[in-house]
Nucleic acid binder design. Structure first.
Length: 883
RNA sequence: GGGAGCUUAGCUCAGUUGGUUUAGAGCGUCUGCCUUACAAGCAGAGGGUCGGGGGUUCGACUCCCUCAGCUCCCACCA
């Protein structure tokens, strides 16, 4: 069959992926082999594949495929995350489109809609991963809200509650008025936002609630909250306001009397040095309020509107209220001035709504003990972070953790298993039945109907932190004493985790905590942090910028292997990835190169009666060594997670060493057959190269491996063993490098003189050039006669050059410019003399001779003698040239 | 404000206890080639005072100080 000159990925990708699935090559069961386990960072169930996933999952697949080919029992567990806020927001939006308001539904009705949506639209991303070639064990696909995994979450909650780690408390939380939920500190994004600083006049009270003429000026960005003011605060050190100590002042418009208090929190040189204290609507103010025992007056409702406690502007949205109150204040003569002000405003990561600090009753889990233990696992080296610099980040996090607010005012998620008695007391139990029993301990008259379950659900991360455990044994979390099932015992701890540094605390650290608590073991040994994928201008990829390519279209255009190579080429661990389609193009071109090398080799006819020519035998010997060496180099790169280096090494091995040198040397003349020995060796090399490349480019390697030789039914390259490598002779490889250098020099001469590659040149060599390599030089440089000479003697017209320390000369009667040669030689002498000066300076420096190690001194001596010899030779050349 | 990191060729990056003759790679650029595997290719070439300054050392891209620029994380002065 005639093979196309171009590799066509769409011809093979689907074929091989279904072949792998059909034969269950990705599936893993515990056995006697060493396990290699990876759990996928579960993408949002409603998510679609973006470039970050592409990068992340390509890396995981490379690691998994390589481990599998090293004979390990590789298991890559896929799955999705229920992502409570993000998913609920999507479902709410979808229902709205259908004209259904969430508030008109019961919890059960809403959950039914949400599950329907999940069944219909969820998990698309996993299908997309298949296009990339991901070798996940799909039989083990998990979802964080699978019944068993949800049970694990509930059991974990009960466990920590009974351990005394979980408590309920009023806290200032970040309230998202759009999603109507509290969000964690880490889900708040501070953006520099243009706002105004309003300077308001607060009149001083006469003590009986009447305004005097005296007033003070307070700067605020939130004039709509003045009705909730509990005090005005000054710095005790501030002499400007000493006369106001102990006095009271009146809130503008509503004339409520509030005290003046003193607290060193106030900075004297910001604004006017006076701060209005609004405990219900600002975190810092809340703390000042606690210190000074101030009342808390909450005037903003859950939707961000002023409530009746505000007295004025009731029902207005906070931003509308701001505009209106400014006008009212101005009319009342109590607005002194306003200035533009740039301040960081918290926005919800999910809805982008401006966060409202709000007091509310939430559930918390204590972090102190958990963090300590989790820090130790990284500090003692049980878990390695790659790159290492993230240890600092990790340590900083773990030493500064605050209690984790785990309740969310949502429905999509695991509902908190707390049950309230009619009298307000509550019990925490895994099931309603147990809860009833526990409740009856407190009050025997309580019935099931009396118990009211807490409305809130748990933070998504409260389920994700169990992931490496619960995907294998969902019955385990919450029960540290219980023996793990067979899967968990075999696969845990997992080996490598590949994720982004942005969730180092959200997820990575918390998995370590859960692992400590329930397994008394780390959840993984290495954490590889990928960078953020940016566009080539360094901007984050975003929908609004439209700078994110569609991954599936990329795969269509360039092939999955091409895209994988393109992603990996620019992947230094921890560095951001500047993605450029030209890298994917390079990946596609590489596929094409491999494809064409295959076409060449398969096009040869073999004659087993002929002997291998000397140059071919030498090339076989050389490539054997080279291959062995590079296998070791690649293994070293992988052991350090230097994946792009490993890939580049393989890229050059195939393209430069195998194609440009090896194949060109052994290639028989057109139409002529190749000898059996060289052919067999070539097929062997090709086989090894395909295996080495398989983890990074699974499809094309499977296709060509099947074509390279007869394979039995059910055979696959993905279960072959990685080539092991072996001994190699560094000196021999270096000798071959000399030959390639000489060839390059000859080609350079041709190019400069405008000589055809078809025209054979003669070559004279003076010096220790390995004789066995002359065959290579002759063949690849198209050299006619090669002679070793003592001296070039009377120099005829020609070109001279140096290969290492060996002088070479090509006679070019009538084809060369003597003046040019002279100039070239002179320039070279000058350079060498300068170099020599430096070497001599070192050698005549007593301190250098005393302190430098012998090897270094020896090397300098060698430099001296080499350079001296070269200069001498060039001088002779010059003499000859000048005649 | 606190912390971490970065700055090497046009671009993206290596540079592994301070010493390997001229600091490397890939891509891009330039030149010549449609040479029977591949123009998604072949061959060759050019390109860097290693961010600036100072110091330690016989010797610094590498260690220290300092200045400048950039990035990220944390905190958030109303």
């Amino acid at each position: 069959m005639e093979l196309s000159a171009k590799y066509n990925p769409s011809d093979v990708e689907e074929k091989w992926y279904s072949y792998w699935l059909k034969n269950k090559f990705f599936h893993s069961e515990p056995d006697s082999r060493e396990p290699y386990t990876v759990v996928i960072p579960p993408p949002n169930v409603t998510g679609v594949l973006h470039m970050g996933h592409m990068l992340n999952n390509t890396i995981q697949d490379v690691l998994v495929r390589r481990a599998r080919m090293q004979g390990k029992n590789a298991c890559w567990v896929p799955g999705t995350d229920h992502a409570s806020i993000a998913t609920e927001a999507k479902v709410v939006a979808k229902l709205k489109e259908q004209g259904i308001d969430k508030s008109s539904l019961t919890r059960e009705e809403f959950m039914k809609h949400a599950w329907e949506w999940k069944e219909k639209h969820g998990g698309i991303i996993l299908e997309q991963l298949k296009k990339l070639g991901a070798s996940c064990d799909w039989d083990r696909t998990r979802f964080t809200m699978d019944p068993a995994l949800s049970e694990a979450v509930i059991n974990t909650f009960v466990y920590f509650y009974k351990k005394g780690y979980i408590y309920r408390g009023v806290r200032m939380v970040n309230w998202d008025p759009q999603a109507l939920t509290a969000v964690s500190d880490d889900e708040v994004i501070h953006k520099e936002t243009k706002s105004k600083l309003y300077y308001l006049r607060y009149k001083v009270s006469d003590g009986a609630g009447n305004a005097t003429d005296d007033y003070i000026v307070i700067a605020t960005t939130r004039p709509e909250t003045i009705m909730a003011d509990a005090a005005v605060c000054i710095n005790p050190e501030d002499p400007r306001y000493h006369h106001l100590r102990g006095k009271k002042i009146l809130i503008p418009l509503i004339n409520r009397e509030i005290p003046i208090i003193e607290d060193s929190y106030v900075t004297m040189d910001f604004g006017t040095g006076c701060l209005k204290v609004t405990p219900a609507h600002d975190v810092n103010d809340y703390e000042i309020g606690l210190r000074h025992n101030l009342p808390v007056l909450d005037i903003i409702d859950d939707h961000g509107r002023l409530n009746e406690k505000a007295v004025i502007l009731v029902g207005e949205d906070r931003f509308t209220a701001r505009k209106k109150i400014v006008k009212m204040l101005a009319e009342a003569g109590q607005l002194e001035k306003e200035e533009d002000y740039l301040s960081p405003i918290g926005h919800s990561e999910r809805t982008d709504a401006v966060i409202e600090p709000k007091l509310s009753m939430q559930w918390f889990i204590k972090m102190e003990e958990l963090s300590k233990a989790a820090l130790a696992r990284v500090e003692n080296g049980e878990i390695k972070l790659i790159p290492d610099k993230y240890r600092n980040t990790y340590r900083h996090w773990m030493e500064n953790t605050r209690d984790w607010c785990i309740s969310r005012q949502l429905w999509w998620g695991q509902q908190i298993p707390a049950y309230y008695l009619p009298d307000g007391r509550y019990v925490v139990e895994a099931t309603p039945e147990e809860a009833l029993k526990a409740a009856q301990q407190l009050d025997p008259s309580v019935t099931a109907a009396d118990l009211r379950r807490d409305e809130d659900v748990l933070d998504t991360w409260f389920s994700s932190w169990l992931w490496p455990i619960s995907v294998f044994d969902p019955a385990k979390p919450g029960f540290p004493e219980k023996a793990p099932n067979a899967d968990l015992a075999y696969y845990y701890p997992t080996n490598d985790l590949v994720t982004g540094p942005d969730i180092i605390f959200f997820w990575v650290a918390r998995m370590v905590m859960a692992g400590n608590e329930f397994m008394d073991k780390v959840p993984f040994r290495n954490v590889y942090f990928t960078g953020i994928v940016r566009d080539k201008l360094g901007r984050k990829m975003s929908k609004t910028l439209g700078n994110s390519p569609d991954p599936l279209k990329l795969i269509d255009d360039y092939g999955a292997d091409g895209v994988r190579i393109g992603m990996l080429l620019c992947t230094a661990a921890g560095n951001d990835i500047l993605f450029d389609e030209s890298q994917v193009e390079q990946g596609r071109n590489f596929c094409n190169k491999i494809w064409n090398a295959y076409r060449l080799v398969k096009g040869w006819s073999v004659d087993r009666t002929i002997e291998a020519p000397e140059h071919a035998a030498l090339a076989v010997r050389w490539f054997t060594q080279k291959l062995n060496r590079e296998i070791a180099v690649v293994a070293d790169h992988f052991s350090k997670f230097r994946i792009s280096d490993a890939l580049m090494c393989l890229y050059k091995l195939f393209w430069d060493d195998f194609c440009a040198w090896y194949l060109e040397i052994v290639k028989p003349a057109y139409g002529a057959p190749i000898d059996g020995a060289t052919y067999d060796a070539t097929i062997g090399f090709f086989d090894s190269l395909l295996k080495l490349l398989h983890p990074v480019m699974p499809f094309i390697t499977e296709e060509l491996w099947h074509n390279l030789a007869e394979r039995p039914e059910g055979a696959t390259i993905m279960l072959e063993r990685q080539p092991e490598g072996g001994e190699y002779d560094e000196a021999f490889i270096a000798a071959f490098d000399l030959a390639t250098e000489a060839v390059a020099a000859l080609r350079n001469i041709r190019q400069k003189k405008g000589l055809s590659p078809k025209e054979a040149l003669d070559l004279r060599i003076k010096g220790a050039f390995p004789e066995e390599m002359t065959g290579i030089v002759r063949r690849m440089g198209n050299v006619g006669e090669i002679s070793y000479v003592e001296d070039f003697g009377e120099r005829e017209a020609g070109a001279s050059f140096l290969v290492g320390t060996v002088e070479m000369f090509v006679p070019l009667a009538g084809k060369t410019d003597v003046q040019e040669e002279i100039a070239k030689a002179e320039a070279e002498i000058e350079r060498l003399e300068k170099f020599l000066k430096g070497v001599n300076a070192k050698l005549s420096n007593e301190k250098f001779m005393q302190n430098a190690p012998e090897a270094v001194v020896q090397n300098e001596r060698k430099k001296l003698s080499d350079a001296t010899a070269k200069i001498e030779g060039l001088r002779k050349t010059l003499e000859a040239l000048r005649g």
